[in-house]
Simulated assay, not measured.
Amino acid sequence: MKALVCRDYAGVSALRIEDIPEPELSGGSMIRVRIRAAAVNFPDSLIVAGKYQVKPPLPFTPGMELAGDVIEVGADVSDFAAGDRVCAVVTWGAFAQEIVLDASRAVKLPEKMSYEQGAAFPLTYMTAWHALVNRGQMKPGDNVLVLGASGGVGMAALDLCRHFGSHAIAGASSEEKLAACASMGAGTLVNYKEASLRETLKEKFGSAGIDIVLDMVGGDLAEPAFRSLGYGGRHLVVGFAQGSIPRLPLNLALLNERNILGVYWGSYAERNAGARTQVGALLTDLIVRGSLRPHVSDTGTLDSAVELLLRFQERSVIGKVVLTIN
């Protein structure tokens, strides 16, 4: 079968499409899936450079989100059968024609959702849901700052804020990106390349501050965002797309009883049996009913995966990019 292969941690440019053996079931809880679509995410560019929190043994195939058809199930699998349409989140392996994964990682894909939609939502929407609902305890009317709002998790967060009746504040680095954020329901737009994040938020929300920061960026934006939180505010740490891990003065947490909360959906799902199934079913139902609208900004094929990953490194991608796997 065809797959995008990483043979050393030399980054995106070293990836190659190769013919590799079809995967075989390795246990009774596993399923084999014919992949129809796979989403491209920023962490894919990190994992092939050895810069992600998980380091797969070489060689491996990157790719974290997929949708496709079950073609074989292990002896202990009762929730899926050959022919079922599914979507799934894995740590690697999605940029290929087939994959073997544990059945607990898969969610049934409704007939009303396309494979492209199925690949576009599980990692980003489940992460955003876990961050805002489980960790951030978001309520209707909350003022929520989303840093890196034009990325996959950011756009999902804006969609969820709109659904829950929260006020989304989109922070991004260009007017083009902010326009896309506005289309997803952001009520306040902040170009943090052109204006002071702290002063803009102070002018808009005054001394009361904001309720939640969803931070995918880190770097020098973390502290002004944290300072903008009001009493009891929650700073949700998702990632460090800017490249540097910030150091926050902890007296800022003490003064207004602000909270710093880590967000790692993958770890949570591993520790809480049934979490993927429960949240996945809830989210797919909202998508089918039109309450949530996953944003797919571009599509490609396995042959264009390297080009699209390079665009992620250049920070030129808006929303979700999905590969069709033939």
Rank of each mutant, 00 (worst) to 15 (best):
V5Y: 04
V12Y: 05
S13I: 09
A14H: 14
I20E: 15
E22F: 15
P23F: 13
P23R: 04
P23V: 03
S26M: 11
I31H: 09
I35N: 05
R36H: 11
A38G: 06
V40P: 14
P43K: 15
I47A: 03
P56E: 09
P57M: 02
F60E: 06
T61G: 12
M64A: 14
L66C: 02
I71F: 13
E72G: 07
D76W: 10
D76R: 01
V77I: 11
S78Y: 04
A81N: 10
G83W: 14
V86M: 01
C87D: 00
V89C: 01
G93Y: 01
F95Y: 15
F95W: 15
A103D: 03
S104P: 00
A106Y: 07
L109H: 00
P110K: 06
M113L: 15
S114V: 12
Y115R: 10
A119C: 01
A120K: 02
L123V: 05
L123D: 01
M126W: 03
M126N: 06
M126T: 11
R135M: 11
G136Y: 08
M138R: 08
D142Q: 08
L147M: 11
G148L: 12
G148P: 02
M155Q: 14
D159V: 09
D159N: 14
D159C: 10
L160T: 01
C161E: 00
L178V: 06
A186Q: 06
A186L: 13
K193F: 07
G209P: 03
I210Y: 10
L214Q: 06
V217D: 12
V217T: 09
L221G: 02
A222F: 12
E223D: 12
A225Q: 09
F226G: 04
R227L: 12
S228G: 05
G232P: 07
V238D: 09
G243Q: 11
I245G: 10
I245M: 13
R247Q: 09
N251D: 04
A253K: 14
R258H: 04
A269W: 01
R271L: 02
A273L: 09
T277V: 05
V279S: 01
V279I: 04
L283E: 02
D285G: 08
V288E: 14
V288I: 13
H295K: 11
T301E: 13
D303W: 09
S304T: 14
E307Y: 10
E307D: 11
R311I: 02
V317Y: 03
I318W: 07
T324D: 10
